[in-house]
Design a protein around this nucleic acid. Structure first.
Length: 272
DNA sequence: ATATGAGCCTGTATGC
DNA sequence: TGCATACAGGCTCATA
């Protein structure tokens, strides 16, 4: 599912084809996404050049020459492919961003939890982005920060790690993986974890995300990069999807349970 | 303020 | 075989 590494993989794939190109038009075949796609997405974008392709958390942003931005979220099942404009759309191909190169950025999203917005002005002040925590790979995230933010929090550290107001980009898969690497039990109260252990956790988060990006993300079912290829990090997952299998460190069978309505897998022996 | 649960949506897997 | 139900997951909103 698209977490930070999958979104970054998408961004990189798109950037090559989008940067410096003009948007000819945007075709919306299905406007009923997470939020209805506003008509101004098409009307404000047509004829404008794309001057940057960025990412904030799990959002991809297209900066347009006049200062406006398109903000794209892949939800849980979204993907973008770069196709020839003339390629017939397939099921769930909801939006085409048609470029002057004759190609189109084609958004496919079976579950329609994704979104596409046009933003006037500073995107950082948009309600969807204004309250987001720091980027995990930007250097701001460290053990001291996580320790400070978690004081007084009684909920599970896994939920804390997945809270986008604390830090962005970490969804269910990578929360499981990072906690395993840091040897922290996912159900432990966030406010009762030491600074030393948060330092380990911060490093684990950065390492697992960086490695996943290098592998092109994790493909479970829907996700493909913009060239249609899947991500290959699945083979490197230590716990997610491995319930009942032996822990790679100690051989103990991995436990699965639900935590905050999310599938949680961990080693009952080496995660404390 | 934090914490929890519902709901959005479709495809796939499981149970009867 | 068919039908019903559960589950997957990111995010926001409503409620405690």
């Amino acid at each position: 599912m698209p977490e930070l590494p999958e979104v970054e993989t998408t961004r990189r794939g798109i950037e090559v084809h989008a940067l410096g190109h003009r948007i000819e038009r945007i075709v919306v075949r299905e406007a009923r996404l997470r939020w209805p796609v506003s008509p101004e997405v098409a009307s404000e974008s047509a004829g404008r050049h794309i001057v940057a392709v960025g990412r904030r958390g799990k959002y991809v942003s297209f900066a347009l020459e006049d200062g406006g931005h398109l903000l794209l979220h892949l939800g849980m099942s979204g993907s973008v492919r770069v196709v020839a404009m003339t390629t017939p759309p397939f099921r769930h191909d909801h939006v085409d961003i048609v470029l002057d190169s004759g190609r189109a950025l084609r958004l496919n999203d079976p579950r329609r939890f994704g979104s596409l917005h046009y933003i006037h002005g500073d995107p950082a002040r948009h309600p969807l982005l204004a309250h987001l925590g720091p980027e995990p790979l930007d250097g701001v995230l460290d053990g001291d920060y996580l320790h400070a933010r978690s004081r007084g929090r009684r909920s599970a550290v896994k939920a804390f790690l997945m809270d986008s107001r604390v830090v962005v980009g970490i969804g269910n898969i990578y929360a499981n993986e990072a906690l395993y690497r840091a040897r922290i039990h996912p159900a432990r109260a966030a406010g009762r974890i030491s600074l030393a252990r948060y330092r380990r956790l911060a490093e684990a988060v950065k390492a697992v995300l960086a490695e996943a990006i290098a592998a092109g993300g994790t493909t479970l079912r829907d996700f493909t990069a913009s060239d249609g290829r899947p991500g290959y990090f699945r083979q490197q997952l230590d716990v997610y999807g491995r319930a009942g299998k032996p822990c790679r460190r100690c051989g103990t069978a991995l436990t699965e349970r639900r935590l905050g309505q999310r599938s949680t897998v961990y080693c009952p022996n080496c995660q404390r």
